[in-house]
Write a protein that binds this DNA or RNA. Structure first.
Length: 596
RNA sequence: GUCCACGUAGUUCAGAAGGAUAGAACGCCACCCUCCUAAGGUGGAUGUCGGGGGUUCGACUCCCUCCGUGGACACCA
């Protein structure tokens, strides 16, 4: 990687200079890690290292420091110059050619690295309640989570993707009660959902998605439903048996719908972990016993409390309520403990910002269990604002809403994923539905996909017969399919074929070729950084930049020409570009069409 | 009141690890297809980086404070 190489060469130079006592009072152990970065202005060169930070320690001005270090840099493939505290590197062709050949040799693995060192990561995200359809907010975490999983895998982590099914508790009863009302309605009885809060409207899911579930239920259970009604003629007060029957049915249907939609949305979980199973297996009780034995629990006001304040939480938390039931937190503590018991070294959760208060509690529980709470990393993502007809629309499960499914239908899978991933999760996402739907041509995803398709098109044209426009005669392809295959064969790749990239003396051709190669080469660094920062949005941004560089190259540098050597060299470059687009889009779970 | 995130161009957003004249996309204006995909490219306009202090040779970036926006502060899930 060029960036690393330059930083390393510079670090060696500093060490050598310091050993020769050229850097004043500078002590090597005080030297901060220096990074190479792209220059702000191409006049300065391609990359630079800022050595100003050594000035204070050495008691020498930044400009002088740079001057002193420069002759110690052993890097013949680059032209080195200094301006103020910057050491600038202008890369020679051999370095650039090396960048391309690495892509050709590694093809679909190009960009990958082993920073994860096979660490076992459990990535938990979406984890919706099975009480209704997934909404747009879930869509954000699905897109971000699945691409983060791809990214981490590409960076050498062993990732398991998990969905925690919140299928226990009151809400499930409410779901059952709500379905029962819908079933009664479908049976023809005149029943309405409570409308006011006094009547308990909050305890019902009155959105119309349960109508279809009710229909489905009656399809196969009509007699049963009528029997239920006969014995329980008050639909607002169903028996436990009815509620259980209804919630079980609704839960299964909802979960199935969620699974199918996520799978269609290119979000595939390895494990679907049911909260109910956690209770049934006795894990929750075991966890309480464990905490009890560690003396982390106490009784107060008829409830059992966890001393989470001992670990930085701002108040203690109830584990068993005074009615004997568990809180949501109790199961969640057991769940996280179970993750660690299953052998995961790193737990990454993606949560909506509305759950941020939970982080301290869960971390406290992990610490109380005697583990290091740093193993849990919670990525808090800001929520999604829906904008319809220029107005913000608040989302609510029990009201009318735009579901993820509706959105996908309007915007498409690629567009929705790219849009959801594109922005840092730290910022609230304004999702303008009208814009995304009506002006879908302007969606940035098309810009990137078009660039990929364009690269494919050049490769296609190169290997197909063409018509001579003047004589109307058939001409052979620029290169035969077989020859092209050999040209980019990783095993037999000849780096010196790339020399012809630099045969041209046309400024725009040289400039656009070089810019494209540098961008392609930096993909490796991008992957490292975005994996480290858990930031898939950086990939989306990178791909837009790469598309821009490629379009620029395309405009000024003709690939297919009469000069066979130059054509071959440029075809290799185009193929490398295609490969990087493909690798990047795959990480995002966005398709890479060959033509558009 | 306490905690978290955010506040950068008309709009939506980048500016990890302090550093060279603060960037992109969309929108607006003017150009560019006899030629590999014009869903493209080139050029142009637009900024008190929320305000005020501080640390530093140097601050969009770090610290303090104030203002604004969103979210969280349950024996709900």
């Amino acid at each position: 990687m060029i960036k690393e190489l330059i930083a390393q060469k510079t670090a060696e130079a500093i060490q050598n200079a310091a050993e020769k006592r050229e850097l004043g009072q500078l002590k090597l152990e005080d030297v901060p890690e220096l990074f190479a970065e792209k220059t702000k202005n191409p006049e300065f060169g391609d990359y630079s290292v800022n050595v100003s930070s050594l000035a204070k320690q050495a008691r020498i001005s930044p400009a002088q420091i740079a001057q002193i270090i420069k002759p110690y840099i052993n890097f013949s493939e680059a032209e080195i110059s200094t301006i103020q505290g910057f050491i600038n590197f202008k890369l020679g062709n051999s370095i650039l050619n090396g960048g391309i050949s690495k892509i050709i040799k590694e093809h679909e693995n190009f960009g990958g690295n082993n920073q994860g060192n096979s660490e076992k990561v459990l990535l938990e995200y979406v984890s919706a309640n099975p009480t209704g359809p997934l909404h747009i907010g879930h869509g954000r975490w699905a897109a971000v989570g699945s691409s983060l999983a791809n990214l981490l895998k590409f960076s050498g982590y062993k990732v398991t993707q998990e969905f925690y099914i919140n299928d226990a508790g009151n809400q499930i009863n409410n779901l059952g009660k709500s379905l029962w009302i819908r079933v009664c309605q479908e049976l023809g009885f005149d029943i309405k959902f409570p409308e006011t809060e006094e009547e308990g409207s909050k305890n019902y899911y009155s959105a119309d998605y349960l109508v279809n579930v009710a229909k489905k239920y009656i399809e196969s259970n009509k007699n049963k439903a009528e029997e239920f009604y006969k014995n329980n003629p008050e639909p607002l007060k169903p028996s436990d048996e009815i509620v259980n029957e209804m919630s079980g049915f609704a839960k299964a249907i909802m979960l199935k719908l969620q699974k199918d939609l996520l799978s269609k949305f290119k979000t595939d979980f390895d494990v679907w972990y049911s909260e109910t199973s956690l209770h049934q297996s006795g894990e929750v009780e075991k966890t309480i016993e464990k905490l009890k034995s560690l003396d982390k629990l106490y009784e107060k006001d008829g409830a059992l409390w966890f001393k989470s304040t001992e670990y930085g939480d701002d108040q203690d938390r109830v584990i068993i309520k005074n009615d004997g039931s568990y809180t949501y937190l109790t199961a969640d503590i057991a769940y996280h403990y179970d993750k660690l018991q299953r052998g995961f070294e790193k737990l990454i959760n993606i949560w909506g910002a509305d759950h941020h208060g939970y982080v301290a509690r869960i971390k406290a529980s992990i610490q109380a269990m005697g583990k290091n709470s740093d193993c849990l990393e919670v990525l808090l993502g800001q929520l999604v604002n829906l904008i319809i007809s220029g107005e913000q629309v608040r989302m609510g499960k029990r009201r009318k809403m735009l579901t993820l499914e509706d959105l996908i239908e309007e915007v498409g899978i690629d567009g929705t994923r790219f849009w959801m991933i594109m922005r840092s999760i730290d910022t609230t996402l304004d999702f303008d539905v009208d814009l995304a739907a009506s002006c879908s041509d302007e969606n940035p995803v098309f810009y990137v996909q078009y660039a990929h398709a364009r690269a494919c098109s050049i490769l296609r044209t190169a290997t197909t017969e063409r018509m001579d426009q003047d004589n109307k005669t058939q001409l052979p392809p620029f290169i035969s399919k077989e020859e092209f295959k050999q040209l980019i064969n990783p095993e037999k790749f000849e780096k010196n074929t790339l020399e012809f990239l630099w045969k041209t003396k046309i400024d725009k051709e040289v400039e656009s070729t070089k810019a494209l190669i540098l961008k392609l080469e930096s993909f490796e660094d991008l992957i490292q950084t975005s994996a480290k920062l858990r930031a898939p949005y950086m990939i989306a941004k990178y791909l837009q930049e790469l598309a821009k560089d490629f379009h620029y190259f395309y405009t000024f540098t003709r690939v297919l020409s009469a000069d066979n050597d130059v054509t071959k060299a440029r075809l290799i470059l185009v193929n490398a570009t295609r490969q990087v687009f493909l690798n990047g889009l795959n990480l995002l779970g966005v398709s890479a069409p060959d033509s558009m």
